[in-house]
Nucleic acid binder design. Structure first.
Lengths: 219, 219
DNA sequence: CTAATATGTTAGATTTATCTAACAATTATA
DNA sequence: TATAATTGTTAGATAAATCTAACATATTAG
């Protein structure tokens, strides 16, 4: 079992690696965690003996497969918690990060399995970030909300957040489905409505309520 | 801010003190926490310098007012968590203790305030144990479920668990209210129904569903 | 009331996670 | 390319929470 400190190093390695094609420097980690380099250095030796990190002096740090899996499971707990707090406890997104930073270290598979169940086994969180499954596997895309895209871009619908029946019915009526490609014609400056076009629909206006719930990828 | 270890000592002191009129020995604590006496001894010195415990060599340990308050707040978090897990996440009572032991250490007043709100500000948990309020104040009785009482005993209704409208309506119809005194005439051996008598009701049969939700005190 | 037993204390060691100071290797730059 | 700047490592110190061994005080029993 990993300590709280070890878990934080694993998580940091995982997220930093995502930005730097799998390689992380001691200095990056040190700054990211606000922990001095010698401390990071010795923790890396420790994680190496635990086969979680692959480390050679003066070379970049890499997570082993085991390390990646354990990190993904912590991130899973973090994202499930955030989503649970927002969806089931009515917190605002800006409030949940700090709480999730603590709850992600709770040791209880049942607790997170229950959250997962109550949330309907989501694969993507409402920021468009993937939620690893209980084996640490995840979709390797980071999606963007339609509401965050810029005028002129061509995007593909990748996922939908908070699939209430009413929302799904709405999408059906508008003939919006996964994989659909659409072009952003313009964005209404006043209320941030997004005006899009796609096959059989030369111009549709999507309110922020809708564009916040559609996750897309650039094409 | 207290460390996780310190919080566990405070909680243990509080619960042990409840059984021994406020005084706890180093040995009791040591056995209860499964931590060796010298460790407990030095932690008590530390908590004394933090004004949480009053300690003199070879004398029993006592929590200060400050210590009692901080302990009560941890117990509040524990009991709210247990209740939340059962009522809102469909856990069984036997599953929640371990999870609550971890969640009680989460630092986030907002998180527990939200649980409290979603549970309707309960003052007593479904075991009949009081839940301290956010100032650490609590009702100083431990109630028993009616279902746990024995034949012949005279009891007073002290609290009601899980106050659904249907249940309150039922109690109204039967003229059962807080403060009502009733005698337990007998207990049906087969299904554990409780047969009671009280003013204007010479004999009422209460099913386990009901007797599990009525908390009483002996008179 | 003494001796045996139980309880409590002190001293010093260990582990984990952190730090600072000093030194070494690598990378960037003049 | 030589040197300066950055990055990484080693050595040793510190604080928290635990332990064991040895000793001291209290309590209980004969």
């Amino acid at each position: 079992m990993n300590s709280l400190a070890e878990e934080n190093y694993l998580k940091a390695l995982f997220t930093l690696a995502a930005k730097n094609n799998g390689e992380v420097s001691v200095n990056d980690l040190s700054r990211h965690l606000d922990i001095k380099m010698p401390t990071v250095n010795s923790m890396m030796k420790k994680l190496t003996t635990k086969k979680l990190v692959y480390y050679e002096s003066y070379k970049p740090l890499k997570l082993t497969e085991k390390g990646k899996k354990e990190a993904a499971l912590i991130i899973r707990k973090h994202r499930l918690t955030e989503m649970y707090l927002v969806e089931k406890m009515n917190f605002g997104w800006e409030q949940v990060h700090e709480i999730a930073e603590q709850i992600e270290h709770i040791k209880s598979p049942e607790f997170f399995a229950k959250m997962d169940e109550l949330l309907g086994y989501p694969q993507i969180d409402p920021h468009g970030s993937p939620i690893p499954d209980k084996n640490g596997k995840m979709i390797w895309k980071e999606y963007k909300k339609l509401s965050e895209c810029t005028k002129g871009s061509l995007v593909k619908i990748a996922a939908v957040i908070n699939t209430s029946n009413d929302f799904l019915k709405f999408l059906n009526e508008k003939e919006i489905h996964l994989g659909l490609k659409m072009k952003i014609k313009s964005i209404e400056p006043f209320d941030k409505s997004v005006i899009v076009s796609y096959p059989k629909h030369a111009s549709e206006t999507l309110s922020p309520t809708v564009s916040e719930r559609l996750l897309v990828e650039k094409v």
